[in-house]
Write a protein that binds this DNA or RNA. Sequence first.
DNA 1: ATTCGGAAAATTTTT
DNA 2: TTTTCCGAAT
Length: 657
Amino acid sequence: MKKYGIKKVAPAGKIDYENELNPQQLKAVLASDGPALVIAGAGSGKTRVVTYRVAYLLEKGVSPEEILLLTFTKKAASEMLRRVEDLVMVDAARIWGGTFHHVGNRILRLHAELLGFKNNYTILDRDDSRVLVDTVVREAGVDTKAKRFPKGRVLLEIIGYARNTDTTIEEAVEMKVPHFLELISEIEMVAVRYARKKKELNYMDFDDLLIYFAELLSHHPEVADKYSRQFKYILVDEYQDTNRIQARIVDLLGGGHRNIMVVGDDSQSIYSFRGALFRNIRDFPNIYQGCRVYTVETNYRSTPEILHLANRILAGREDGFQKTLRPIKKSGPRPALIRTENVYEQAEFIAQRILELADEGVNLGEIAILYRSHFHSMEIQMELTRREIPFTVRSGLRFFEQAHIKDVLSYLKVIDNPRDEIAWKRILVEIPRVGVRTADKIWDILKESAEPLSTISGDKIPAAISSGARPGWGKFSLTIRELKNNAGVGPSELIGMVMDSEYDYYLQAKYSNYERRVEDLRQLANYAARYDNLEKFLDELAMMGGVSTNDVFAVPQDEMVVLSTIHQSKGLEWDVVFVIWLAEGRFPPASSYGDNGNMEEERRLFYVAGTRCREELYLTHPMIARQRSGEETILQPSRFIQDLPADCYEEWQLFDI
DNA sequence: ATTCGGAAAATTTTT
DNA sequence: TTTTCCGAAT
């Protein structure tokens, strides 16, 4: 079938900036060249400022590829670029937009040899990284039994924190898990071997995409020069959540021409656990002398009642830029505080209220339930299911992190990169009668081979493994051979081949919900159809861990209540928002107490939660909760609520009818 | 020496 | 729902 592309050729209508922006926004959008900081409070049209700014630059004659737009998620970038295209007749796809990780990857793909990698490196997602760290621990012969040694997950967190904050492993351990300080030398050794192993195997984890990006720019002036010449204008969104490395990257790229505009809100910095420094935004004007500071405070999103509460959350804070959200919307109901007997009553209240709202004509898609930690959503999920209220969960295990998805992707990975140890071992141990030991043996042979995919067919491997494992191996090698012979057909078809292979029997045997998993895989194949290049497909997926099932399936969102962690709700908004589990020990969580905790960040998190809401805000907390031991404890209301003046909310009392 | 099966434990927040 | 740990089975 013939396919048509669309190119806009009509001349762009001139944008009427004065009419479409408020005075504060206008000043920021029309800012002249040079460093600029835009402090944009929640709901103040931050995205609008960024998109109009980009459109303005384009109208001025800046060409799209000269603009670098760094955002917090890939989705935010594409959304902004889409809106730019509505404003100006320019092919916005030519603008470099995405997360630091995306842009880093794009550039590293071209220059990785300069750093001792090959350009076709494989990106490790978090689970891959964990597996590799565990492998390193095993290979290093650390005695994990004598003293309790941190697990892969924990080690990764330590290593990642140290790298993202540019500090030593020792400091990271002291900060995160001080009780492991006595094992510091072993942990340091693991960190070193992990880094070495990644280089040997041509792997980059998420942190590497940032750190090697920065290293590339600082150690190779000719590369830095090339890109800082190319990107004449740099815009960074959510600058309050950048870490030291990211700030350095901005510096290295834009330090010369200084046409850097950073946008953010220091009150919404909620990622310090992964190294974000809200100092970055606070100190920006000092680092960039002559920087102009623009403040955008008019809030278009929320009612005065909600903003009053939001402003009070952060009242008395010393640090940061002074700003007060100024309402423009008409008055609405006061936020409600509901104390419930226990978690079940909390869930029942919310479900009931949602049904009432639906009766009043509120669209379910305009309702969100926000919480601090994913597991806080469990009772709610059960209650909504029981009452057949449709909902979508945007936290917890992500679509691409599910076992069967990762299995099938591993088949594709070994075709794309036959030296991918993690992917090989993952699928090898799924062969009947093959476990870790046999997988090690097979990998040793593959590793030494000049062409691993051809070695699959020889008799070298059957000779090395036990007779029990040979039949399984035979079928497996056939599948690999078939994939290899069709490597050019595109990821979607390859996924189909894996599904038709012996792997299907494995799935049936292993999982009780086989049907649903097969359906997932069909959707994955469906999704893959939009890619014709295997490497690109795998790259995107590795960095899309945060994508939920619904993003992949393109299910219409407007019919479902959204359940989300507050972190994931950043940048989004709903008419009705429930913030749940507002009890001491839950939100703020126990981990935020004490010297190593970060109570101020928790408070900002509460601020983010409240400011997601347009009309009706509900704060709930159970008064009694069952501990894991089975014991019932009385919960204190969250200090965030106790600290609020009483005029911020009204209290509702529940009674049986 | 390995694999496999069942029971127990564990889940902050994420590019 | 998944990882981890341990003893039985091959």
